[in-house]
Design a protein around this nucleic acid. Structure first.
Lengths: 185, 185
DNA sequence: GCGCACCGTTCACCGGTGCGAAACAACGGC
DNA sequence: GCCGTTGTTTCGCACCGGTGAACGGTGCGC
């Protein structure tokens, strides 16, 4: 999987389909461009919107990159959906959004990365636990406490971790105002 | 869903490339949608505009038609931004519509899925009960109560569950700018 | 016209549980 | 030593699912 977890550089997100259907929905809700990697013998889905394209795997690397390039070109030309100065997270444990930023300790950094990676979608507790502690999770409540602490740290950035009971957590950003700024990404 | 390749084909023209490059240029000048059929080992060209797409041949017939369909869909929706795109429900118990969403508990999630799958049509109480409790419904009142709760949860999304007496329930969405439901309230 | 059965809505309540949050202890870096 | 991070324990709340009951509208039989 080509992961560019910092959604700063890449505009196009690769999504395996139908395996990662929920992710597709989330990206659509966030109005982010996505390229569906269709498993062989999977019928082509109906298009959600113009920010989507698909490719049948296996595919040549060059063709895949060309597909991403074309989609990115379309997105850039269509409208300013490349949008809103979304939050980013770097390798130094800093979460930035606009002029604001906050530093995160290691565990919360990994949790925040997992949530940001799938912003707008539900991340299961299992997935979060695995992201936060790759070598095995400690106690059962450790995750609860770290989510609580991460909540408080992200609150000043107007980022909210929503609880989806018995399902997981969902990260969102309060956008009081949508800037119609031209996409110069 | 009917795709009717003849109809779509009226908008999308297939062009072998680079063999028919002149034709590509002409279609571009005429602002007509075109699908490039790339010979193997031909590098992907740079996109001319948004009315273009490409596919590497040989390609499965179904994939080719899907490609045409997608391109036609894009062309159709280019001017009128397909913005609203009705509500969706994902595997994580989330119902989304536009920027809004709500999380549903398991039972209501199953009910909502049954209603959304047949949105605009009447879903019988039996079908709903079977969808909500595949292993057999509990009491008689359980369905009523869960429909009530689902109503209240979906209300913020401007989604309404209409009662069709002695027939079942019908889900509709209030569109802010145009009236789509002919139901009497 | 009257009463009644049927159907659907809504509320109150209860047992179970997932999660929130505080308090506390252990560990480590500056 | 001080402070920040990490993990555990503990308590309590809010939510979820289900039941019973009260309420109201509609149609039918008498």
């Amino acid at each position: 999987m080509v992961d560019d977890p910092t959604n700063s550089g890449a505009e196009v997100t690769l999504v395996r389909w139908p395996a990662q259907d929920a992710r597709r929905t989330a990206l659509r809700a966030a109005r982010r461009a996505r390229l569906l990697l269709l498993d062989p013998s999977t019928p082509v889905p109906t298009p959600d919107d113009d920010l989507e394209d698909w490719v049948r795997i296996p595919v040549a690397e060059a063709d895949l990159r060309a597909r991403v390039r074309w989609l990115a070109h379309r997105v850039a030309g269509c409208d300013a959906t490349g949008d809103d100065t979304g939050p980013t997270i770097d390798e130094d444990g800093l979460v930035r959004i606009g002029p604001d930023w906050v530093a995160l300790p290691p565990v919360e950094h990994r949790l925040a990365r997992a949530l940001l990676d799938r912003m707008g979608a539900v991340v299961s507790r299992d997935a979060l636990a695995h992201a936060g502690w790759p070598d095995g999770a400690p106690g059962r409540n450790a995750l609860d406490v770290h989510v609580l602490r991460l909540r408080r740290r992200l609150a000043p950035l107007r980022m909210t971790i929503h609880t989806v009971r018995s399902r997981g957590y969902l990260l969102s950003v309060e956008t009081h105002d949508r800037t119609a700024d031209g996409a110069t990404t």
